[in-house]
Amino acid sequence: MPAGRLGGRVGHVTFWVAIWTLALGGLLYLLLPTLIIVVASFTAGEYITFPPQGLSLRWFTRLMALAEVRVSAWRSLIVATAATAVAVVLGVAAAFPLVRGRFAGREALNAFLMSPLILPSLVYGLAALMFVSAIGLPLSVPVLVLSHVAIIVPYVIRTTAASLALLDPHLEEAARSLGANAWKTFLRVILPNLLPGIATGAAFAFISSFDNLTVSLFLAGPRVETLPIRLFAMINFDFDPAAAAISAVLVLITFAVVLLAHWAVGLTRVIRL
């Protein structure tokens, strides 16, 4: 039946055209804002527009002159680095019992340690502010660091635990049977194999802390302004086009984090972490 066959072919083509159109539309939709903000930051005009009015580095140059941007960027770097360091120590240690341990309540403990991931960070920011005021701590960098640790420690636990779960448990037994004690087994065999996972988790944790606005909004206070807060103010209140230059830099850092994750464990595995 040629007519039926033709109909079938038309249906087939329509189906794939529809799938591809929606999918490519989705891809473009995902990519567009990032792309546009980077391109727009090179504008030579007085406002951030797309397409940009001529190309120049004037807004990047202006960034250098903005002292408060420099200070807040430096502060964000310190907060994110410190928070990541603490989160890595806590998270890597916690991942071991969660994967290899055999004790009652392991699943529940895992769910508990992951719970900051699903709690709206705005709600956590409010709660942390109440907690900090109740015990009388002044709003300061250490307070900010600790609150960031609470929301990023799950990333480290997850990626470390996922890498550990993929690691052949027999490696440990092999090392022990060859004469390595528990400590040497950890340092020489387990840790080197977990490093990619830990690095990926640490990179995600770092970027989450570095980009965090909602928790910082509550806990930063006027004297501990972070870069996202400065950027937020520049866009919403100052209408400063240099914000696009900062955004472009932030996109670049994110780009580096994604590349690091790809280099360390491969993106196809990252999404299962």
Binding site: T34, L213, I235, A244, L250, T254, V258
Partner: peptide
């Protein structure tokens, strides 16, 4: 994956600005 993860990890402030 790249196009998915890049915005996922990009600051919400930056994306909203875009």
């Amino acid at each position: 994956l790249f196009v998915t993860l890049l915005p996922l990890l990009t600051s919400a402030v930056v994306r909203s600005f875009a």
